[in-house]
Design a protein around this nucleic acid. Structure first.
Lengths: 254, 254
DNA sequence: AAGTGGTCTAGACCACCGG
DNA sequence: CGGTGGTCTAGACCACTTC
């Protein structure tokens, strides 16, 4: 702490640019409107395109802009609240804004997942792929890891993979009666496959929500869900409300 | 989604670089070790420095690296789990890995906060600044907005601001008996003041945790806490465990 | 084909940290 | 002071979408 230098740090150009653009977005643009292209914008502000892009990147990270290759840059709507609380997660496939099973396969999970499940490092588990959409937009892709021991009664299911089997596994899992759960959230970057599903480029920022479900005291499943960080605000607890944006607005001193 | 083209997309250089570096970090480096400088690394891989930097940026975003101007790039330890569950949040200042009140002032909050608190847009509230450290590292900076109505009995406190007043306000708030809470998590970028407190550059990625506390059915306080996204994994619920990294490791097909 | 954003280059200078 | 990462430039080409 100590050195609270009130230095007149030359504010980086891209930082200043971001501020100017942010204010312009508030006052002169409407949601969905397309901005001038990067070359024009850079010229207008008298900076190199790379510098302009640095500002746009930040604004996109904050959910203010949306850029699509070959199309253009548009003003993004406010982030949508996505419920991650226990309610929405009481699977079955359910209705409304919920998860949609896409696929199922048997494979050896990543080491970290195996540890969380307390399975052998080389033990195969069921892996259910699910996706989640809100208001028609893809918001999350999930990998659900389920030890074979959790769903022993998979007879009568002939499909070795596919959505049908995914639903069957989920049905069995639900029958267990899941009790409690562990959850953590961290920043990550989209893998190639997730990126495709989220309609983003690989490396796009995502919020990785890792959940561990317990039944009868033992880990019954682990979910690794990656949410689009640019468009999503994860909400916990009961009400899905709370409309606060962490904007640049400063409090005025009294 | 329809066109699942198994295209042989020419993988971007920086993406491939990131993969190579990531594997090298796993096998040939230890936590805390310093990497060669960017110019050398770029030369070694035969790319421009900007390209190399793009890869490093991603790795830093994923918490694998830590870069500090004037010092160098070091291998980061695994992200630390930071409990955001209800337990740690039962203020008082408490002990151990908790919040430390730093300051208090009266000011008009941002509009969004005023709405969440259901106060008048131009009504002053108490703003308590707190910071949180874990293992000696600063991990979060918080602004706690408390309507005057929530803490009516602030007599006997002569300090108009400062840590002493902050503690007094917190003490009063705690006396209310907070019941429930709303919480949301989203990605943001550090404001200049937060960045200084978190020992990062402005614009650094942060996880913004917004919590609304209720007492007797009405909003009693709103907390906006910004956590370092590079070093923190937010944990919810009871146990603070769960050691899963959303790594690039792919599941092997059965 | 035209226009968009995404990647990449080879330089330059600046701000910061350490000895 | 020398070495580090951070910023910035002016170009080039590529991948994608749309018409």
């Amino acid at each position: 702490m100590g050195t609270t230098q009130l230095d007149t740090v030359p504010e980086p150009k891209y930082w200043h640019l971001k501020t100017v653009l942010s204010e312009a977005l508030d006052s002169e643009f409407t949601v969905g409107e397309i901005l001038p292209n990067e070359r024009d914008l850079a010229a207008r502000f008298g900076v190199a395109r790379a510098t302009l892009r640095q500002a746009l990147e930040q604004l996109e990270l904050e959910g203010r802009l949306q850029r699509r290759r070959g199309v253009g840059t548009t003003v993004a709507p406010p982030r949508m609240g996505v419920a991650v609380g226990s309610e929405q997660h009481t699977w079955p496939g359910a209705v409304g804004d919920a998860w949609q099973p896409a696929d199922c396969a048997a494979a050896v999970p990543p080491l970290a997942v195996a540890q969380a499940l307390e399975t052998e490092p080389d033990e195969q588990v069921h892996i259910v792929r699910r996706s989640r959409t809100t208001h028609g937009q893809p918001v999350a892709a999930e990998l659900l890891y389920i030890p074979a021991a959790s769903v022993p009664d998979l007879s009568g299911i002939d499909a070795p993979s596919g959505a049908a089997r995914a639903r069957a596994v989920l049905r069995e899992l639900q029958r267990l009666g899941l009790e409690s759960q562990d959850r953590s959230v961290e920043l990550g970057s989209a893998r190639a496959d997730d990126a495709k599903e989220l309609d983003r480029l690989p490396g796009a920022p995502v919020l990785v929500v890792t959940t561990r479900f317990f039944a009868e005291g033992v880990a019954a499943a682990v979910s690794v869900a990656t949410y689009r960080a640019d468009t999503c605000r994860l909400t916990f607890g009961d009400s899905g409300g709370l409309e606060i944006h962490h904007d640049t607005a400063e409090r005025r001193a009294s």
